[in-house]
Design a binder for these strands. Sequence first.
DNA 1: CGTTCACTTTAGAAAAACTGGATGGCTATG
DNA 2: CATAGCCATCCAGTTTTTCTAAAGTGAACG
Lengths: 302, 302
Amino acid sequence: MLNRVHLNGLRAVETVARLGSLAGAAAELNVSVSAVSQQVKRTEKQLGQALFERTPGGLVPTEFGAVFTARLSAGFRELAQAVALANETNECTLVVSVAPAFASKWLLPRLSRHFARHPNVLLRIDASARVADLDRSDVDIAIRLGDGKWPGGRAELLLAQEVFPVCAPSIAARLKSIGDLAQTCAITDEKAMFSWDGWFETAGVEPVTFQKGARFTDPMLCLESAIAGHGVMLAWQLLTADALADGRLVAPFGIRAESGLGYWLVTSATKGESRKVRDFKAWIREEIEATMAQFRALDSAA
Amino acid sequence: MLNRVHLNGLRAVETVARLGSLAGAAAELNVSVSAVSQQVKRTEKQLGQALFERTPGGLVPTEFGAVFTARLSAGFRELAQAVALANETNECTLVVSVAPAFASKWLLPRLSRHFARHPNVLLRIDASARVADLDRSDVDIAIRLGDGKWPGGRAELLLAQEVFPVCAPSIAARLKSIGDLAQTCAITDEKAMFSWDGWFETAGVEPVTFQKGARFTDPMLCLESAIAGHGVMLAWQLLTADALADGRLVAPFGIRAESGLGYWLVTSATKGESRKVRDFKAWIREEIEATMAQFRALDSAA
DNA sequence: CGTTCACTTTAGAAAAACTGGATGGCTATG
DNA sequence: CATAGCCATCCAGTTTTTCTAAAGTGAACG
């Protein structure tokens, strides 16, 4: 049905009918009068119906044309609303792709502050495990753990990741020296991108062999297991910030090892950087700074 | 708003969303898959929003895409309805352009028979005085008085026009010979395309000088004046058929003169001839034939 | 009578849309 | 585990549409 007709022609007809003249329509459509004239004529031909009567004063809809263009106007209004909705949504909602563990343990507790500062920006957190393709999804910004190399993305380092053991205070009490780790269980994330070896090296001791411990496929589960006192976990700053701050976890030995990885903010290289994205970046840097200050305070207290 | 976006792209998006795959949309739109893919992509770029998620199984609308395409569908449905309305109207209504006098005195009384035969065709009679441009208005067919030469139109002779005097029976009673016309008033149509001279010539008599009589700019008014008994009018068959049949008028002398003009059916040379037009033509020829048979009956009765 | 206004016509230029073939990811199947 | 089949994308070249500029028409106006 609709395939037989040129949409641009319909738009021209609608605009002419609404504004009552070719000149007006041409101005609204940003084309020449001639172009509109041709579009209207072609559409009339396709419909096999004259839509306008050519009077000296300009184009006047025929009886049928009036009914027809009223319908058209309704249709185009609907389309315009859809597009307007898109632009609005576009400006007002920010989609952040982030790993579930990071979302849950660090980002979510702080989100209310972002909302307080930018009340008109609706955040949508896409915490699906799968890494989103920034160019092809509606994700505006991703927070990822890695080495900063993402093809087709603009990456900015948020925070270099330092790893260190954490455990429940009850376990920490038994750890006088690094060697005591051999008496504890290791809580292992099977998907982790780093290992204990790096930490032992930084600490300057031979690797210790742990007791058998639980293995998980998700850092969030590891963390909860550690809080429950099941063993020692090799963790990093942002994930453990809140648990360390309120004492559910402690970091024995105070030795932190560079992992070579870090948290990065990644945005599409092709999409322009919008206001909402800049605002979010600024906000998250402040939050990270606050978290790190808290860390340093704990350090000096120790 | 809507000007910034390509309508064809929106249509592609809507179709893909509705059918769930590029291939389906391509089939419906009669273009290649590749074309649809490009349209969708371009639209997403223009909106600054991803509308679909690319999964191995095909395109799935994103959260926003679902809302957006629902809106689009509504809009396009409206447009499609408008176009459908056009096609329907196109098939079902026939616009006839005709002079007011002819419409009133001959065509209208017979229209109910056209409706009885073609119940699904709605006739619209455009009886504006101005002669419609068949190519540029929604007029399907015109009935015109003339010599058959209309540039840019296909003309078919309906009936050659013969002119003859008519008057009220009361006046006719006083007219024993053509010379008696000198005692009557002539009712004159100022816009008439013929004169009494031609009739006198056919009758083989010297032109008669009438009494002063009324002059009108409309044959319909002349006719009514004649019926009212104000004088003698030079009239022609179709206009007077009904008044002669029921005796409101009579045609004294029985002499009819060729006027060189006639009633013609004119259709656009560029528009194709549709069913409804053919039907109307057939019907009107039958009606003319019936009217002329009635005429002949009157003649032989006299 | 010449001017203005509103639209049309035309031809050529510019832009958009389309095609077809190559490509690449994923799934089901032998 | 290769292989075929599906789905979509990319690319380059071509076709089609759309646009512009400029000249033209024709009614109305002063």
